[in-house]
Amino acid sequence: MKTKNNFSLQYIFINYALYIIMALMILAIGMMSPKFFSLRVLRDILMQSSTRIIVAMGCMYILVSGSADLSGGRTVGLAAVIAGSLAQKSDYYIKFWPNLPEMPLIVPIFAAILIGLIIGLSNGFVTAKLKVPSFLATLSVMMVAYGANQLYCNKAPNNSQPLGGFLKTFSELGTGSFLNIPYIVYIAIFVCIFQFILLTKTCLGREIFACGSNQEAARVSGINVFKIQMVTFALAGACYGLAGCLEAARTGSATSNYGNGYEMDAIASCIVGGCSMTGGVGNVFGVFIGVLIFNIINYGLTFIGLSSYWQWVVKGLIIIVAVSLDMRKYNKEN
């Protein structure tokens, strides 16, 4: 593929469109308000991105394996509520489980990941075993998860109140930092590294890509497609569960409406980051940048005081520009 032209401006522009757009955005916002170039802003954006990065990573497993997943957002919400209900101080006056003693930090985290896993495995089962198209399978599982969440939240004595009164250790997980970098940023980066290794350095990773590229070919060449689908949905579910737990810790509360719409943000970030809707293509770093771009838009436009209405318009336009430029990369190669 490498020719003399590789170093031409056009080549650079097409191949690095995403990064150029991100740099231009940062530059434009910074020119309007120089305070944007500060460590605090960087820290804020990384912190706000971290739970979404984890959700997007989960979503990436699914997209790469050639399926779609709409259950992400509501799984985050259910996991947030379950983690929150297990992380309350014993003297909080509407404690979700009044007789439950204060739990060590690992319990809510573990419970959130577990519920994510269960939902993920249900998605996998409905898709791989019952042969329901993944779009519909995950849509249905999403509805069940949301309904279950509302039922759970409505349990007396909570009666659909937002959950609060979290233990210090739990809140610290979402708001504390080490070397001035929030814990949740470390966790998000750890998830990315894990995923990078899994997808690129292991046999399983190659099988996931193979399934996404061409499921029939993968099946014929001896890959257990059922297993791959179950594994990818389970991994995705675990990511959503973890993100939900962190979302509760970060905001200091949880309601049944948490995570609403996160699945669309995650899918959009994945696509902006170079994943293909038809499977088999995607890289962890691209998705990471995709999430960052969205959060820089969200953060930066509020930062300069642009009205929320305009933010939607600008956001939509940036996605169109970013993806259409990025697509030219593939057109060129073909």
């Binding site: 804020d44 969200n298 509020t302 930062f303």
Partner: peptide, 11 residues
Amino acid sequence: AQEMVAALLAN
């Protein structure tokens, strides 16, 4: 709200 206020606070 938390995210938007954080962004406004930075400025």
